[in-house]
Design a protein around this nucleic acid. Structure first.
Lengths: 197, 197
DNA sequence: TAGTCAAACGGAGAACCTCTCCGTATCGTA
DNA sequence: TACGATACGGAGAGGTTCTCCGTTTGACTA
């Protein structure tokens, strides 16, 4: 009780040097991840941000936390888009459009987003993971209610297919391949579970 | 000239200790990869095989080479299966059956096969990669000729979709998910590229 | 059987990595 | 200005990959 002066939040107000270092680390991490992919050296990020490794690790206890923080803005934007798309006329188009956006996100920085989605479901990434699953579920179930998406399909299935495309095309030389594969998957999602030929 | 006694192959006959060490390394690697996944420590493999790290690295210059060697048998078997399936009655069933086998392969040891397929296309993996692409292409084009698989589909697309499923479900808790997702993809592959709703 | 030597071994170690610990410096406040 | 909590940063522990090179050994030859 009575730990902080008068903020609505629980934490005591962060020191300004800490806040600045955090911002610098985030900006640098975004750069370095973009250059070297999600396996980039965290030491290198600290060095380029002009702080010691200890500082980086206090702000972000592990790689996953840093990746999550770097991607959080983008993920939140993505999920806001989902909210808007929920009032679109065609639930089908809405789902397709959102999944294209999600694929682009998951492909960012050599599959960094996709990797995070799979690697550490129990770590810091969990809230982002849930956020995305929630958006996908909302869009999918609306399409299912409208009858344009097959009923035997879960949001987790759809997300995994798209993440899979992101991962397996991370190093492709064919720039059109990811969207082409997504179109194929969407095609399958539209059709009723056909019995025979 | 006159380096080797009388073998048909080009290389001088390997020394028996070298051959034994190579076999021990392969067997140990298989075990350790199965336990710890494709990121397992190569030092640990050398130690458990009872050889120094230098010996491991002379036989297998990098992780990819070792993974490839471990998987080579299985890949060759897979491709032989493809040959047999080429004379099956239904090209469609043949493709489906082979892809199920390939998915199982790619999921081996926490996505080790899939990872190799994507990670190092230019390294040692290249022949295996080509081998698999070749098998997939043969099965696919036969299904396309029979008219049961859509024509606007490349073997590379199909392989990437399946590898994607393997990678993104490497840590899934739902044991039925991989095959379920493959069934979905196969469904899409069967249908003609439908125009609209 | 003894001698020879290329081939193979193996381990020390260089260069990296992640992550921790703790003495020191700094911020914000009284 | 003085003080205490907060944050910094770098040394270093313990891991990794991979190389180098002196030593050993298998296989051939005389």
């Amino acid at each position: 009780m009575s730990t902080r002066p008068g903020r609505t939040s629980a934490q005591p107000p962060q020191r300004t040097d800490a806040r600045l270092n955090r911002e610098r680390l985030l900006a640098t991490a975004q750069e370095v991840f973009a250059e070297a992919g999600p396996e980039a050296s965290l030491n290198e990020i600290a060095r380029r941000a002009g702080v010691g490794p200890g500082t980086l690790y206090r702000h972000f206890p592990n790689r996953s936390a840093l990746l999550t923080a770097v991607l959080r803005d983008r993920i939140e934007t993505l999920c806001e888009t989902a909210e808007e798309l929920l009032s679109a006329e065609s639930a089908d188009d809405a789902l397709a459009q959102w999944l294209h956006g999600f694929l682009a996100h998951a492909r960012l920085n050599k599959g960094m987003g996709g990797a995070l989605m799979i690697e550490e479901p129990a770590a810091l990434g969990i809230d982002c993971h849930q956020l995305i699953l929630h958006s996908a579920a909302a869009l999918l179930s609306r399409a299912q209610q409208q009858g344009t998406a097959r009923a035997d399909l879960s949001a987790d299935d759809v997300i995994r297919l798209v993440v899979g495309i992101a991962l397996s095309t991370a190093r492709t030389e064919d720039p059109g391949q990811p969207d082409r594969l997504l179109a194929l998957v969407l095609d399958a999602a539209h059709r009723p579970p056909q019995g025979s030929a």
